[in-house]
């Protein structure tokens, strides 16, 4: 099939960018979206033009590196699908496809479709861990964890940190990402000793990074490739209230 792509091109963080149109001819429906971009890039290289820069790595939907807004929807908006597993069979011959980077003040564009997501790392630095040095752990079965709690923790821990939640939120909010980590550790007894400082620290850092706040649009949940539920945001809100009211 033949497509028209409108792709955001931006040389670096300082210069202004703009949408540039490219013709993508003879695209196979079996290609993934990124393989389609590979083909477009190969042709650009052949013409001596600079290929489009985009983040990608595992190409099996787990590393969280790929990050494209396709026709206004993060990862293209298909249920439980990252950009790397989105296939061209979902498009039609003659389609015009607009490809943009994640847009958020906290995720500045590095080049073309590549953004800087280190804000997420800094939020984790602020408490998204259990302080447990290697070597001193008790036997793994010493602390039973109810199966339901383990499953709920896993539901939250499935987050791949891609940032689609931020990209899709009309407020550029990172609540789903932060909540996934807070909720994962709040559901496990191992996370309890540090639960108050964790949620306070991470929310504080989230605000400092310039993410927006949650007005319950629930777009984040709809585009999340790992289907992380907004129930974790409610859980984080509870954790936050608890910590703010009760802790010294």
């Amino acid at each position: 099939m033949n497509l028209t792509l409108r792709i955001w091109r931006q040389r670096n963080a300082q210069e202004r960018g703009s949408l540039v149109s490219y013709e993508a001819k003879d695209i196979s429906p079996d290609m993934s979206f990124l393989e389609m971009l590979d083909v477009v890039n190969e042709r650009l290289i052949a013409k001596g033009e600079e290929p489009v820069a985009f983040d990608h790595d595992c190409r099996e939907g787990i590393c969280g590196m790929c990050s494209l807004v396709i026709n206004g929807l993060a990862h293209g908006g298909r249920r439980a699908t990252t950009t790397c597993q989105l296939h061209m069979r979902h498009f039609k011959d003659g389609d015009v496809i607009t490809v943009e980077p994640w847009r958020s003040r906290a995720f500045p564009v590095v080049r073309d479709l590549v953004v800087d997501r280190t804000a997420f790392d800094r939020v984790i630095h602020a408490g998204g861990f259990v302080s447990s040095n290697a070597g001193g752990a008790p036997d793994a079965n010493a602390l039973p964890v109810p199966r339901d709690d383990a499953e709920k923790a896993m539901d939250a821990a499935a987050c791949i940190g891609c940032g689609a939640c931020v990209a899709s939120c009309p407020n550029g909010s990172a609540m789903l990402f932060v909540a996934a980590k807070v909720s994962h550790l709040a559901h496990l007894p191992q996370g309890h000793p540090e639960r108050a400082q964790r949620v306070l620290g991470m929310v504080h850092q989230m605000d400092l990074e310039g993410f927006g706040n949650c007005t319950n649009h629930t777009e984040c949940e709809a585009v999340c490739p790992k289907e992380v539920s907004i129930s974790h945001i409610a859980k984080m809100n509870r954790e936050f209230i608890r910590a703010s009211v009760l802790e010294a």
Binding site: P138, P146, H187
Partner: peptide
Amino acid sequence: AIIDQCVAMGVPFAREYGGQL
């Protein structure tokens, strides 16, 4: 020891109903 360490840092391994791994 690896499993002990991973559980201590909050890795949500699959569990049985009794809470055991």
